[in-house]
C-alpha cells in the first residue's frame, strides 16, 4: 500500500522587513549581516495572523488540492514553537475551522524548527498503519528573536500543510527516517519570551551533524545517490546553511534552489523545510524524486523521500503557488511597525 501526500498548501504573510532596516536600528553592518546570513528580508505576521490562522489557510489550500471531505481526516497535527496558547491546542481550532471534528485525533507538536516535519512523520506513519484514512500535518510558526539578537534577522512567519492518504497521491512517500540526539544548541525556557541559542555551536555539531545524519540514513535506506533526486530541500535557518549542507552532501545548486526560500523569506521554523517542499511540488514533474530533511534544535532531523506522481499536474493550480506568495504582493514595514506587530513595545493598560 502506497502512502503519500494527497494535498499540500502553503501560506506566507504579505508583510516583509528588510535586514538592512533591522540592522539600521541596532547599529549593525547591514551588508555584513546579509552576506553572513545569506538573507535579504523576512516575512512578518500581521497582528491578526498567528500559527493558527496561517495553519488554517495553508490547510484549506491543501484541502483544495486534495479534493477530499475534511470529515475524512482522522488526525490533525500542528507543529510549531509559537502556538498562540501555552495550554490549549492549536490543532483543535484548525480541525474545527476546516470541519474535521469530532472524529479526529489531534495533537500539537513542538520540536523547535522540526515540529512540522514531526507531524508529517507521524501522520504518514498513522496512515500507513491503517488507523486513519487521511491525516493532516501542519508546520507553522511566527517565531521571535530577541531585539538586536542575531536571531531577529531571520525569525519569520509562514505555514505549510500536508494531507496524507493512500489514494489520489501527488507524491508517494518512499522513505521516512529520523535522526536525533540531545544537543543543547537552542532553547526557550517556560515563561521566557525569547529563545536563547549557543552561537556557533548551533552549526557544525548541531545543524550539520544532524542534517547529514538523516540525509545519509535516507540514502542508505533507499540505496539512492544525490544524482537520483530531482530536488532536495533542507531546513533553512538562514540562507547559507541549507546550501552548504546540500552541496556537501553532493547535491547541485540546481537541485537545491527551487526549495531554497530563506534568502527572501527568513526562517519560518516549523514551516521552513515543509514550505520549501511546497515550492518544489509546485514545479515538480511526475517521476521526480525529492529529498526533504528538516532540522529542529535540541536536536533532530526528519528525512523523507518523495516520488512525485502525475496527479501533480491536476492539483498544482488549485491553490496559490508558494513562489508567487513569496515574490508578489509584498508590503514592507519599518522597524517601528514591525516592533508593534510583534508585540515588542511595552504597552500601557
Amino acid at each position: 500500500m502506497n502512502v503519500g501526500i494527497v494535498g499540500y498548501g502553503a501560506y506566507i504573510p504579505r508583510r516583509r522587513i528588510r535586514l538592512a532596516e533591522i540592522a539600521s536600528v541596532w547599529g549593525a553592518d547591514a551588508a555584513a549581516y546579509e552576506r553572513g546570513l545569506g538573507l535579504h528580508e523576512k516575512s512578518v505576521p500581521a497582528r491578526d495572523e498567528d500559527t493558527i490562522t496561517m495553519s488554517v489557510t495553508a490547510t484549506r489550500r491543501a484541502l483544495a488540492r486534495a479534493g477530499i471531505d475534511p470529515r475524512d481526516i482522522g488526525a490533525v497535527y500542528v507543529g510549531s514553537e509559537s502556538h498562540p496558547y501555552a495550554v490549549k491546542p492549536s490543532g483543535t481550532v484548525v480541525a474545527e475551522a476546516i470541519g474535521a471534528t469530532p472524529a479526529v485525533h489531534c495533537a500539537d507538536l513542538e520540536f523547535a524548527c522540526k515540529a512540522g516535519s514531526e507531524g508529517m512523520f507521524i501522520a504518514a506513519a498513522l496512515v500507513k498503519s491503517g488507523e486513519v484514512g487521511h491525516a493532516l500535518a501542519v508546520g507553522a510558526d511566527t517565531s521571535q528573536g530577541a531585539p538586536g539578537d542575531a536571531l531577529e534577522y531571520s525569525t519569520a512567519a509562514g505555514a505549510a500543510a500536508y494531507i496524507f492518504g493512500t489514494a489520489g497521491l501527488v507524491a508517494t512517500m518512499e522513505a521516512q527516517v529520523s535522526f536525533m540526539t540531545d544537543t543543547p544548541d537552542f532553547w526557550r525556557r517556560e515563561y521566557m519570551h525569547y529563545p536563547r541559542h549557543a552561537g556557533r555551536y548551533t552549526g557544525e555539531p548541531a545543524y550539520f551533524k544532524t542534517t547529514f545524519g538523516a540525509a545519509r540514513m535516507l540514502l542508505e535506506k533507499t540505496g539512492m545517490e544525490p544524482k537520483d533526486f530531482a530536488y532536495a530541500v533542507f531546513h533553512q535557518p538562514n540562507g547559507k546553511f541549507p546550501m552548504r549542507a546540500g552541496t556537501q552532501l553532493g547535491f547541485t545548486r540546481e537541485q537545491l534552489e527551487p526549495g531554497w526560500l530563506s534568502p527572501w523569506l527568513g526562517n519560518t521554523y516549523s514551516g521552513a523545510s515543509p514550505i520549501g517542499l511546497t515550492a518544489v511540488l509546485d514545479r515538480a514533474k511526475a517521476g521526480d524524486r525529492i529529498m526533504m530533511v528538516s532540522y529542529g534544535s535540541g536536536a533532530g532531523s526528519d528525512g523523507f523521500v518523495w516520488a512525485v506522481t502525475d496527479r501533480i499536474d491536476e492539483v498544482r493550480d488549485l491553490a496559490p503557488h508558494t513562489r508567487e506568495q513569496l515574490d508578489n504582493n509584498k508590503t514592507y514595514v519599518p522597524y517601528g511597525v514591525y516592533a508593534k506587530l510583534r508585540g515588542k513595545i511595552r504597552m500601557g493598560e
Binding site: 497582528r47 491578526d48 495572523e49 498567528d50 493558527i52 490562522t53 488554517v56 489557510t57 484549506r60 498562540p84 496558547y85 475551522a97
Partner: peptide, 14 residues
C-alpha cells in the same frame, strides 16, 4: 481568510 479578530487581553481567549 481566517484571522484573529479579537483577544481577551494577554491571558484570555483568542
Amino acid at each position: 481568510e481566517f484571522r484573529r479578530i479579537q483577544e481577551d487581553g494577554e491571558a484570555g481567549v483568542i
